[in-house]
Design a protein around this nucleic acid. Structure first.
Length: 587
RNA sequence: ACAUCCGUAGCUCAGUGGAUAGAGCAAUGGCCUCCGGAGCCAUGUGCGUGGGUUCGAUUCCCGUCGGAUGUACCA
């Protein structure tokens, strides 16, 4: 199914070509003057110079052909050369009916499905998720869904941080506390216990403690370095412990992400990439890409067009140790081997922009990925508090994600209970869904690259451009449809073409769905989905208040309204799904 | 110091080389109280600033002011 805009453009191309003008001027846009028209074409203005004609003359030459076609009720040339377009209601209604019968409501599917590797989430084992992890998870999840929706093969990888000093610190602290565990007995040759010697709660306490302690005690830190070294070189007991740490952590992380309706296809870890490093380093040296500079092994990634100094991409430190970059490059090697992606998307804090620029350049220059591979850095801004500074707890600490969710869920719960009676378990589940919707929508409705201000009160409001408002609209429609079903009304009707103004506005908004999906995909911009879904919800509520639906006495007309409601509901729910927002049946 | 990004209404945010720059919240006045309360109408202020390109600039370019961020052995 073609985009509505595409149909209009094709018609416009015919008209421009027919009048002897290049079709590149036949661009159609949604009108920026809805009081005058629904769609518009500014091509005559642009063509005027090339053809040495007054724009108005060109516009007038194009218009007649438009009126002959099946789409336009009105097409008029207006000074200084705009072409104002109004659609036939029949055409619009047919289009929406076709949407209703088409998979994904007619959203354009890609003709060249790509394999897209999207790297988001980025949690570390043994450390609780905090607000810094929120944006990556929320934005990444939505981008993943949007890419998948238009027909690409998308692999979401959590890329777990499970390597490095943090593990050594935990092992060291564990040994201090429980020296008798078999993991610390070099003589032990039997099977290690299946049960981990700690809970997630203990683990989360151990790491910060050990980290702080090591900063005060150099000998402890040295011990941790030694433990890290031994772990990475195959100490059997440490490896078993490390596996316990991962298992316990991942179980907890999955639970947390599940609460947020975030789901990863892959749970790859930094450690998985380690085995590629020796060959990678050898390759970079042998091929002459890497050289020694100031004792470190580096690859130059400067380019002629740079306006600033781009530091070389460091592969090995001067002491021979690997860096995070080494692991990231090795991860790319692994991904090429296992998945051969056409596109990489990294959903990461925008402050890492330079870092990833180096990674991307190095990957291309050293041919770790093919030249045509697309590498996208999707940097997001900081979540700030009401004071405009990075979000903190009341006492100035880093807020755990769990606590943030609990806070927002609590606020929503109170609002729900003001007016509804629900049993405790349903209310709890509804509050979770609505709360997460408030949180996610508050985040996603901003451009990802910008910082934004987190405001519980605003995000959880049932008024305005918020998640709860969207969900409320959905729930309202569900309720009406449910009532209609109980009345035993006709469910096979189609959307009618005789429409009142608010109904027309609703049809027009529905007709833009496919266009919106494409833009959101191309720009990797979930906020476009938010903007659209908000406008759609608004258009519906406008219609709802002007139109008696279930009380309509003309059963034909009523059945037509119901058909329209079903499409609106479907599109609203689809948009929520693209945002990773779950929709309750009641609230 | 250099570089990147940002600066739009009182607040939070959209938006575009083109017609009168939009929402929400907040404010004021009025209406509605109906299928699920979270609607409707009206009123008010804005593209940081100075140039340039263009038929046309809030949008592109340059300067300037302000803010955020980043600049090889952290990630």
């Amino acid at each position: 199914m073609k985009k509505l805009m595409e149909l209009l453009r094709e018609e416009m191309v015919k008209a421009f070509a027919g009048a002897g003008y290049d079709e590149k001027y036949a661009q159609v846009n949604v009108s920026n003057r809805p009081d005058l028209c629904q769609y518009q074409c500014n091509g005559a203005l642009a063509a005027a110079k090339a053809y040495h004609k007054a724009p108005m003359v060109i516009a007038e030459e194009v218009v007649p052909a438009l009126l002959e076609g099946p789409y336009f009720e009105k097409a008029e040339a207006v000074r200084p050369g705009f072409i104002n377009l109004t659609l036939r209601n029949e055409f619009l209604a047919d289009y929406v009916n076709e949407m209703a019968e088409t998979e994904k409501f007619g959203a354009v599917q890609t003709e060249e499905p790509r394999t897209i590797m999207i790297d988001y989430g980025g949690p570390n084992v043994a450390k609780p998720l905090h607000v810094g992890h929120l944006r990556s998870a929320v934005i990444g999840e939505s981008v993943k869904r949007i890419c998948r929706f238009v027909g690409h093969k998308v692999i979401g990888d959590v890329h777990l941080g499970d390597w490095g000093l943090q593990m050594g610190l935990i092992i060291t602290e564990l040994r201090k506390r429980q020296p008798d565990l078999p993991y610390f007995d070099p003589e032990f040759a039997g099977e290690y216990p299946e049960e981990a010697p700690f809970t997630i709660g203990e683990l989360e306490e151990i790491y910060p403690y050990a980290n702080a302690f090591s900063k005060e005690h150099p000998e402890y830190l040295a011990e941790a370095h030694q433990a890290t070294y031994e772990l990475q070189n195959g100490n059997r007991g440490y490896l078993a412990l490390w596996q316990h740490i991962i298992n316990v952590s991942v179980t907890d992380l999955k639970r947390n992400y599940r609460n947020l309706n975030v789901e990863f296809d892959l749970w790859k870890k930094e450690s998985d990439a380690q085995k590629y490093i020796p060959d990678l380093v050898k390759y970079l040296k042998d091929e002459g890409y890497a050289y020694i500079s100031e004792g470190a092994l580096v690859v130059d990634v400067k380019e002629e067009t740079d306006t600033k100094e781009i530091p070389p991409c460091m592969i090995l430190k001067s002491d021979g140790a690997t860096l995070y970059k080494t692991t990231d490059l090795a991860t790319i090697v692994e991904r090429e081997k296992l998945f051969d992606p056409d596109t990489y998307i990294y959903v990461v804090d925008k402050r890492q922009g330079l870092y990833f620029e180096q990674i991307f350049r190095c990957s291309k220059k050293c041919k770790l990925v093919p030249e045509e591979t697309e590498m996208i850095f999707l940097g997001f801004g900081t979540m700030n508090g009401k004071d405009g500074k990075p979000f903190k707890t009341r006492d100035g600490g880093v807020m755990r994600l769990e606590n943030l969710i609990a806070e927002i869920k609590g606020a929503v719960y109170d609002k729900i209970m003001e007016n509804r009676q629900m049993d405790e378990s349903e209310a709890d589940e509804v509050a979770r869904k609505v709360g997460v919707a408030a949180l996610k929508y508050g985040d996603l409705s901003n451009q990802a690259s910008k910082d934004y201000i987190f405001d519980t009160e605003r995000f959880t409001s049932f008024d305005g451009n918020t998640g709860p408002y969207i969900l409320y609209t959905i729930v309202r429609i569900k309720s009406i449809l449910q009532k209609y079903r109980e009345m035993g009304g006709d469910e096979s009707a189609k959307v009618h073409a005789e429409v009142n103004p608010s109904e027309l506005a609703l049809l027009l908004q529905l007709g833009r769905f496919s266009e919106m999906v494409q833009t959101a995909y191309e720009e990797k911009a979930p906020h476009k989905v938010c903007q659209y879904v908000y406008e759609l919800a608004n258009a519906f509520n406008g219609f709802y208040h002007e139109t008696r639906i279930l009380n309509e006495e003309d059963t034909q007309k009523r059945a037509g309204y119901i058909a329209l409601l079903k499409v609106v509901l479907g599109v609203l729910e689809t948009c929520c799904d693209l945002l990773g927002i779950e929709t309750p049946d009641r609230m």
